[in-house]
């Protein structure tokens, strides 16, 4: 069973993402031994990572702990369904910029939580979001520089036990208000070009691990697959994500505003629904 699950992880290239979810879901279903399994450790989490990192990054070299990228999360998760995670980029260490940051949660059924694409010259140095964490696990951030180098950093999160399952708390509400967005703009010191924004999207971001109680078939996963945040038509931040992002996906980030303008957001979910909204950028230091 174990080897079967790991084999199925080979599906985890970003391209075949939703296929992968289905494949691993079925692999896990077959494995009652996994249900009774022992808690993951740093070593076993590392082992899982080693088994699928080639599927995400191929044979490319990954450099560890250079300080270019930093990740923060609570050592012990309060709520496995809502684990805050912060990723910081040090621009001084990335003279050719950072193109993308990938967030990995080793032990999750879908370990590739999200890939963020950073707008060229958008000046994003901090991304904060919330994720589901199924068990004790490394959370990894891997930054890809403008020249194609991969820099990795990681933090270990203990998330398990109790009745805080990584599932949607209020499904009716999540469905009723699906697609609603809210943008918060945090004032920055005057004369600063840096803006801090928080984008919130109502969406159940369902796991697809729910079984229909009558048919016993899995209810298909339903989650925000793609997201782009732009100032006018200039990309600030894009995300390709999956079920490891918590319900009501939430992203707080900074960027360098390019004068006044509109913040435009477009999100697409696995049902093909497209959600759009836009807000004028509040001029703080503009």
């Amino acid at each position: 069973m174990k080897s079967q699950a790991l084999t199925n992880r080979r599906w985890f290239s970003p391209i075949s993402y939703s296929l992968a979810i289905a494949a691993v879901a079925f692999a896990l279903l077959g494995g009652s031994t996994d249900i009774a399994g022992a808690q993951q450790t740093m070593a076993s989490s590392d082992k899982i990572w080693a088994s699928f990192k080639g599927d995400v990054f191929g044979e490319r070299q990954i450099i560890s702990d250079t300080g270019l990228v930093r990740i923060e999360a609570p050592k012990r998760a309060q709520d496995a369904a809502l684990v805050p995670v912060d990723i910081y980029i040090d621009p001084a260490k990335a003279p050719d910029g950072v193109k993308a940051v990938t967030l990995i949660i080793d032990v999750n059924p879908a370990p590739l939580a999200a890939t963020f694409t950073l707008g060229k010259d958008a000046g994003v140095t901090h991304i904060s979001t919330r994720v589901r964490v199924n068990d004790y696990s490394w959370l990894r951030a891997i930054a890809e520089t403008g020249s194609g180098q991969l820099h990795m950093t990681q933090t270990f999160v203990k998330a398990s036990g109790g009745c805080s399952a990584p599932a949607v708390k209020n499904t009716d509400e999540a469905m009723a208000s699906m697609g609603k967005m809210k943008l918060r703009q945090f004032p920055e010191p005057a004369m600063s070009q840096v803006q801090e924004l928080q984008l919130m999207i109502r969406h159940p971001n369902n796991s697809g691990f729910q079984r229909d109680p009558i048919t016993q078939y899995f209810i298909p996963a339903h989650f925000v697959q793609k997201l782009s945040i732009s100032q006018d038509d200039k990309l600030i931040l894009a995300m390709e994500g999956g079920i490891s992002i918590s319900e009501d996906p939430n992203f707080r980030f900074d960027f360098k505003a390019n004068g006044p303008g509109e913040i435009k957001v477009e999100a697409t979910d696995t049902d093909g629904k497209v959600f759009q909204d836009q807000w004028p950028l509040e001029a703080a230091g503009l």
Partner: peptide, 14 residues
């Protein structure tokens, strides 16, 4: 349906 398997797993340890 959404939580059952998780409960069985996490309480097994507890």
């Amino acid at each position: 349906a959404a939580r059952g398997d998780f409960y069985l797993q996490s309480y097994h340890r507890q």
